[in-house]
């Protein structure tokens, strides 16, 4: 039963339908007031700016490159289908998918390990997962520049073993390493949450019904942890697709990704309408991916 509505404690008259109705309305009003600050925040700083970007994507530029809010057209959207843009898009998609896939493969066993420890050990491990957040992402990405550079320890190790010095920095592999590194916690945490809720008796039941350890995992543990897989994948895929810092610092000039491409349109090229259109295209793909993931996740449950 729902909790009785908190009403004016002064009213002690017998309850009538009108009084009961009024109390319900007061309750609804109170709920709205509680949500109001975040509502205002979201409208002011998210909905309105996004609307502006949307409007700009249909604008034109004058001879000096200045954006003018007239002659509304679809030129920027047409340009999305140029080979250059499609190539960048495809590269970003592949990289985001690879990042998501690698994170999933690396993090699932780890999340499984955490979820099956005693509560004490579990908490320590979770704190360890979150420690990277305590230092700045930019600083950590710069650290990777050192590690992956031609003077870095990886290259030195190769020389020590009699090989050639090499440099991963400014390649797609470097970007991939950086992205996987950066977004790993976003995969671990939802997976952990899903596995921690697991009813391990179900796994016992599967083992009892002649499933070996691997089959029990495939038929019971994995399907039941799908909500975690879906949430983690979305949390990694979406920021990977739009990532800016990592590709900008670790990627090469020839391997432009969506994130830095959009930034370059707004800053270097000063093509705001095109930058806006690109932003919306990325958002559209993210929306599609999210719907796809949720559908796929819902099917297993």
């Amino acid at each position: 039963m729902a909790a009785p509505p908190v009403t004016d404690p002064e009213v002690t008259a017998p309850v009538t339908p009108e009084l009961e109705h009024a109390a319900g309305k007061a309750e609804a009003r109170r709920g709205f007031l509680i949500a109001l600050p975040s509502f205002i925040y979201l409208v002011l700083l998210f909905v309105i700016p996004l609307g502006l970007v949307f409007v700009y994507s249909f604008a034109t530029r004058d001879a000096t490159g200045q954006t003018v809010l007239e002659d509304w057209n679809l030129e920027s959207y047409k340009r999305l289908f140029s080979t250059e843009v499609l190539e960048i898009f495809l590269r970003s998609l592949v990289l985001a998918a690879l990042t998501t896939g690698i994170c999933l493969i690396v993090c699932y066993p780890f999340a499984f390990y955490i979820a099956t420890r005693t509560p004490r050990v579990r908490n320590i491990l979770l704190i360890l997962v979150m420690i990277p957040f305590w230092s700045n992402f930019l600083v950590r990405t710069y650290a990777w520049r050192v590690l992956l550079g031609s003077e870095g320890p990886l290259s030195q190790l190769s020389v020590l073993l009699g090989g050639e010095p090499f440099r991963l920095l400014f390649t797609n592999v470097a970007v991939l390493i950086g992205l996987v590194y950066g977004f790993m916690p976003f995969m671990v945490l939802p997976l952990y949450a899903a596995l921690e809720r697991m009813d391990w008796r179900l796994v016992e039941a599967a083992r009892d019904l002649y499933a070996d350890g691997w089959t029990a995992f495939r038929k019971v543990t994995l399907p039941l942890s799908m909500p975690g897989v879906v949430a983690g994948s979305i949390l990694v895929f979406i920021p990977s697709l739009g990532a800016y810092v990592t590709p900008a610092l670790l990627g090469g000039a020839r391997t432009v990704l969506m994130g830095d491409y959009i930034v370059s349109q707004f800053l270097a090229a000063r093509n705001w309408p095109f930058g806006s259109a690109l932003s919306f295209a990325v958002m559209f793909v993210m929306l599609l991916a999210t719907i796809f993931y949720f559908r796929a996740g819902a099917k297993t449950l």
Partner: peptide, 17 residues
């Protein structure tokens, strides 16, 4: 292991999938 034993269990909480 349980899967190699000729027994089956009815669990207290049923443990249905």
């Amino acid at each position: 292991p349980p899967n190699q034993r000729p027994v089956n269990t009815v669990f207290q909480s049923y443990a249905l999938f």
